[in-house]
Every structure is written in structure tokens, then in C-alpha cells.
């Protein structure tokens, strides 16, 4: 593996770890709280989706035209 490929792969792994943290926190909040969980879930789910959109889907390609 070339080095930039390796570092990109590692970046993916870190994003995955972050997503795992989000999912598990969500689970704890959702199952643990009897009511009023939704603000926490919004706070967790939206950045979670944002991580995928930014790092996995490379949304910034849309406005970075060089390559």
C-alpha cells in the first residue's frame, strides 16, 4: 500500500470508531431514558450522518474543483 492510501484507510477506521461511539451512545440514551431522549438523539444522529457525508462521501468534492 502506498502511504497516502494507508493514511486514508486509517482515517476511515477512525471515522468508523467515531460512528460506533455515536451509535452506542444513542443506544444507551434511547434505551436508558424513559422520556425526553429525543434532543440527545438529534445531537448524536445529525453529526453522525455528517461524519459519513463529509468523510465517506467526500461532499467537499462538490466545491473543490481541483484534483
Amino acid at each position: 500500500m502506498k502511504s497516502d492510501q494507508r493514511s486514508l484507510m486509517r482515517l476511515g477506521l477512525w471515522v468508523f470508531v467515531a460512528l460506533m461511539v455515536v451509535e452506542i451512545l444513542e443506544y444507551i440514551v434511547g434505551v436508558g431514558l424513559k422520556r425526553g431522549a429525543w434532543p440527545f438523539l438529534v445531537i448524536l444522529a445529525v453529526p453522525g450522518a455528517g461524519l459519513i457525508i463529509y468523510y465517506f462521501m467526500h461532499i467537499s468534492q462538490l466545491w473543490r474543483r481541483e484534483e
Binding site: 434511547g30 424513559k34 431522549a37 429525543w38 444522529a45
Partner: peptide, 9 residues
């Protein structure tokens, strides 16, 4: 979907 379906209470 996951939180809206499973986790909200």
C-alpha cells in the same frame, strides 16, 4: 431512521 424508529421515547 434508526433513532426515530427505535430510540425515541
Amino acid at each position: 431512521i434508526y433513532p426515530t424508529l427505535y430510540l425515541v421515547s
